[in-house]
């Protein structure tokens, strides 16, 4: 059976697409899938460093498209996690070195080799975005609880619908304390405004920075809340769509309650 192609996109930059692509790739591979994560940001690659594979790049996606190498030669195998592969972007080529028809050709081949292909989409709605959505079967839209990010997400959702893709939403960088004090949109607010289905909620987590510093997969860090949330999103993407979505707000109040109980006893 052919594998599926999922695009991770957002419109606005810096909301966590690359972090999420790398982590979902790792989590899906740990769940036993054969996974390729593809950096679609031609000219500005990032996914390689986030995945800690930057010093193993020989060929890139443009080399594959131009016929300068085989897919197998460009796909870098992760040595820590079985069945996880990265196809890096080219750093020197122009944004429009790849066209949507090239991506359709490439993903049709990747579908034969991999159970899941994740496309880490660049910000914006230009060439890289068009290339990514032309080839995708499914989409994960990432936004943060901020006006500008949600507005851009809305635009992206409209463009995805126009391609007959019904996206799922991840709200990233939630700060429960700020939501509680009324100074950050809650995920309910965001879902209400965008009216699409949620697939996961990720808290602001210092471990994300630590993990990118060292290039080690976030999902391997058991103490990382973001990592755990991403593992569960990977399960939802792959055969467990009804796994309940944990609410960062609940967790906080649970620990608070527990904490206050202890305080009373002492």
């Amino acid at each position: 059976m052919d594998g599926k192609v999922i695009v991770v996109t957002s419109g606005k930059g810096g909301v966590g697409k690359t972090t999420i692509s790398a982590s979902l790739g790792a989590a899906l591979a740990m769940q036993g899938k054969r996974v390729a994560v593809v950096d679609m940001d031609i000219g500005l690659r990032n996914l390689d460093v986030v995945m800690g594979l930057e010093n193993r790049i020989v060929f890139n996606i443009v080399d594959i498209i131009k016929g300068r190498c085989k897919i197998k030669q460009a796909a870098i195998k992760d040595r820590r996690i079985d069945n996880l592969f990265l196809i890096p972007a080219s750093q020197s080529d122009d944004k429009d070195a790849i066209k949507p028809e090239n991506m359709i050709w490439l993903t049709n081949r990747l579908r034969k080799e991999f159970d899941v292909t994740l496309l880490d989409c660049p910000a914006g709605i230009e060439q890289g975005f068009k290339n990514s959505i032309a080839a995708a079967d499914e989409a994960v839209v990432v936004c943060t609880p901020e006006v500008s990010a949600v507005r851009d997400a809305d635009r992206i959702i409209g463009l995805l619908y126009a391609q007959s893709i019904t996206p799922k939403l991840i709200v990233n960088r939630i700060v429960p304390e700020m939501v509680k004090s009324g100074n950050m949109l809650s995920h309910e607010d965001v879902v209400e405004v965008l009216s699409i289905d949620l697939i996961g909620l990720i808290e602001m987590d210092d471990r994300v920075v630590v993990s990118t510093n060292t290039g080690t997969p976030l999902v391997l860090q058991e103490e990382s809340k973001a990592g755990m949330a991403l593992k569960r999103i990977a399960l939802r993407l792959d055969g467990h769509p009804d796994l309940p979505i944990e609410n960062p707000m609940d967790k906080k109040s649970f620990w608070k309650k527990l904490g206050s109980k202890f305080n009373r006893k002492n």
């Binding site: 006006v147 949600v150 939501v179 009324g182 949109l185 405004v193």
Partner: peptide, 12 residues
Amino acid sequence: SDSKDIAKKRLK
């Protein structure tokens, strides 16, 4: 009003 209520109104 909370700043998030203002955010939501502006967003809509």
